[in-house]
């Protein structure tokens, strides 16, 4: 995709999210617009950086880093970022993702049906693994440092 068409997709996604934010959370699109523009800038800048930077990292690494820096208290404008982006609900950003996924999923539906039950089992195992892994390490470290 050309850079121009990628940026067009960014803008359309932002519009879809504003609509979702309005219908799902009753947040007026005008009120949410500044926050959405901030997100749009972070996304576009991060995407652009990942293309031109000599350090080859996925665009989300750049986007995330930029968003973190822009919101650290004390960084110029950070309070505005927090305030405006706060009016864009997280869940209203997930709905467009799953809408596009839903449209594209048709061609993978058979694969999904075959793998589905296995994936459910594995997903539950990952919850168990993460929980037990964290509890074990915390328990050992706290014992070693004499905290418990």
């Amino acid at each position: 995709m050309t850079t121009a068409s990628v940026f067009r997709v960014f803008i359309i996604t932002a519009v879809l999210s504003l609509v979702g934010n309005w219908l799902g959370f009753n947040i007026n699109p005008i009120a949410a617009l500044p926050g959405m523009i901030i997100l749009l800038i972070l996304v576009a800048l991060g995407y652009w950086l990942s293309r031109v930077s000599p350090i080859k990292l996925p665009s989300i690494a750049y986007i995330s880093a930029l968003a973190i820096i822009a919101s650290i208290p004390g960084v110029p404008g950070a309070n505005l970022v927090a305030e405006y982006v706060g009016r864009v609900e997280f869940l209203s950003l997930t709905t467009p993702v799953l809408a596009y996924t839903g449209i594209s999923i048709g061609k993978d539906l058979d694969a999904f049906r075959r793998q589905g039950p296995k994936i459910v089992v594995i997903a539950l195992l990952t919850f168990l693994g993460t929980f037990v892994g964290s509890a074990l390490i915390a328990q050992v470290v706290l014992k070693l440092t004499g905290a418990i």
Binding site: V9, I63, S64, A67, A82, V97
Partner: peptide, 19 residues
């Protein structure tokens, strides 16, 4: 298009990390 839409989620999550 999914990948591009997901980038907004990443940005939103990032802005809740900074503080």
């Amino acid at each position: 298009l999914i990948g591009f839409a997901v980038m907004f989620l990443t940005a939103k999550m990032g802005t809740s990390i900074g503080p």
